[in-house]
Design a protein around this nucleic acid. Structure first.
Lengths: 339, 339
DNA sequence: TGAATTTACTGAACCGGATAAGTGACGCGA
DNA sequence: TCGCGTCACTTATCCGGTTCAGTAAATTCA
């Protein structure tokens, strides 16, 4: 089956290729009557502009890219990215931009993918997640002048637009809530320590605990996997002075932590309260359901997509802080047992 | 920054554009010495062929598409798709094919996306998941002659290649195992009933139970979500003659089922054994860890990608049944308690 | 009424590769 | 030594859009 081209439309309408192009793109240079005739013919024969031809003649590729740099077994279970992607799509689909995905092993490979995409003119811009300190991807993107939105800061991204969520506010709310319940020994199982937003959270956690008079605000670094999250929990709970509440940097680790606590014979929330950061259906699935810091990840992604499209369009795009996650109390938190 | 083109390379090497194209694509028509010189220059200036130009001059778009038709909240937590995507990427990245993703709401929209992708010449082929009975996507793909691999059959797909896993074998193994433990009342919480592979599983479950002499092999339909899985579990367990073992069509529902059982005061595996279909890290996270039907989903995806690339290359591609999932016994299964 | 401007187009160049057709130079067999 | 085939290229065309320069007709304005 042959794909219809603007030449086909031009022939049918009895005009030139150029006129068809103007008509379909809403450019001036054709009369309303002709435009309507051309649009009708395009509709009728099911015309879709060849994206390659379009991209080649200097216009945009109408595609944006996302690289995911996590091992497959983490990606498969981590709800965050799929939520983010769903959010991207809401905006992208509406303007018929395609999303190109690539799973990579290292940040080094990510920069290579950016270079290739740029060279191939495959994408008009990219989403950057998991910002690190002195992130090697940032200078590459700046050098290539490839529009990008960086998710997971704030950090030093040069000219690139950024989007992050108010992690300090969220952790203040969580710690305040646990203290109001009567907890005094609160620990945190953190995400990958080299990610910038993990560092932001750690700093905020330490500060807010200090301000509220909690002497020992321990953060155990972890890596977002259930195994590590469980291991970190075990380390925390074998202490004589074990915490009465633990905040986890993602839901997967929180579920693992819950499981470890139950396995050690501790009751949740009686002996240990648990708060999960990011509220996926996972949190409501387990028993007891987990108190979580909820934020609308799809909305977060949609916002990022709008920013990226604006950056691609050449509009000035500032850095944006998304709203604070709010606490959704469920069965995993309660006042600590007197002992 | 200007992208290097073959014209730049041609100028540097003192040859024509055509020679460069032949040299870089391994075509005959240039001497080894010249070829090496050209390749070296391309390397040096970091040349990547413009994908649009390539696609336009009749070659392939070097991209394949995947549409995902599940609501965001299911996608985010369902580990299957991310595992599949990781598998796709293993093969695609190796041959520098891009993966274009689109999240859609209905199968109807999927067909529209296929038409658009075809018209735009954006992809060379597509992955089709969640095959249904009389699936409306199949005739569209056959009409467009768009290469495709259908995952989740077997079913009637005309000329399109198919890949499915041996669900009957897997369920035979699971039921056999539970019977060997002494279970006689085994139920199943199924996935979306209109998906073909769910129907295959249901049929196989009924058959194998009948063959092994289990009179009541109930399948409760569900939709892969935790909520529905939990609800279905509750319905099963309030029966006087409640099952002593339940097989779930995915891990999310199994986890939810576990949670419901515990909430109802039933011990797992003492009062109820649980088997999950598809073994994600989720199964090892909960307490007790879930016995699961494990299959290598990434390998499944990689296999599908190889098939799709072969179909795109015009090679004959037959239907393939992937290996049977094997049972990984964990703490959620045990002999039923005497009562 | 004639000149200037605007409208509604057409024709052709261009983007950057792939590729068919053409062209010398060279080697080799008769 | 002629003719033929092969090699190593070059030249030119094509893919399907976008866009700029040009043009004839219609309209505006003095």
């Amino acid at each position: 089956m042959k794909r219809p081209t603007i030449a086909d439309i031009a022939r049918k309408a009895g005009v030139s290729k150029g006129a068809v192009s103007y008509a379909l793109n809403g450019q001036p240079g054709v009369s309303d009557a002709t435009r309507q005739r051309i649009v009708a013919i395009a509709q009728e024969i099911g015309f879709n502009p060849n994206s390659a031809a379009r991209a080649l003649s200097g216009a945009s590729a109408r595609a944006v890219g996302l690289t995911l740099c996590r091992p497959a077994r983490i990606l498969s279970i981590e709800p965050f990215f799929m939520g983010l992607i769903s959010g991207f799509e809401q905006e992208l689909a509406a303007r018929s931009y395609a999303l190109t995905l690539q799973v990579v092993a290292t940040p080094q490979t990510e920069t290579e993918v950016y270079r290739r995409w740029w060279g191939e003119r495959r994408v008009d811009g990219v989403f950057v997640t998991d910002l690190r300190e002195n992130d090697i991807r940032i200078p590459v993107l700046n050098e290539l002048q490839l529009p990008a939105v960086v998710i997971g800061g704030p950090g030093d991204t040069g000219e690139l637009a950024q989007l992050w969520s108010d992690d300090a506010g969220a952790i203040t709310e969580a710690v305040g809530y646990l203290m109001a319940l009567g907890h005094r020994r609160i620990a945190r199982v953190g995400g990958l320590p080299d990610l910038l937003h993990t560092q932001t959270r750690t700093r905020a956690f330490t500060e807010v605990c200090a301000k509220l008079g909690l002497s020992e605000a321990i953060t155990v670094p972890s890596d977002y996997t259930g195994e590590e999250g469980g291991r970190a929990t075990r380390r925390l709970l074998i202490n004589a002075e074990r915490p009465t509440a633990i905040i986890y940097d993602n839901d997967v680790m929180a579920v693992a932590g819950l499981s470890v606590a139950q396995e050690m014979g501790l009751s949740v929330p009686g002996d240990l309260s648990i708060v999960a950061w990011d509220d996926s259906p996972l949190c409501s699935l387990v028993h007891p359901p987990l108190t979580a810091l909820s934020r609308d990840i799809a909305a977060y992604g949609a916002h990022a997509a709008r920013q990226l499209l604006a950056a691609i369009a050449g509009e000035p795009v500032g850095d944006v802080e998304e709203g604070t996650a709010h606490l959704t109390p469920r069965g995993s938190t309660a006042p600590p047992r007197e002992n």
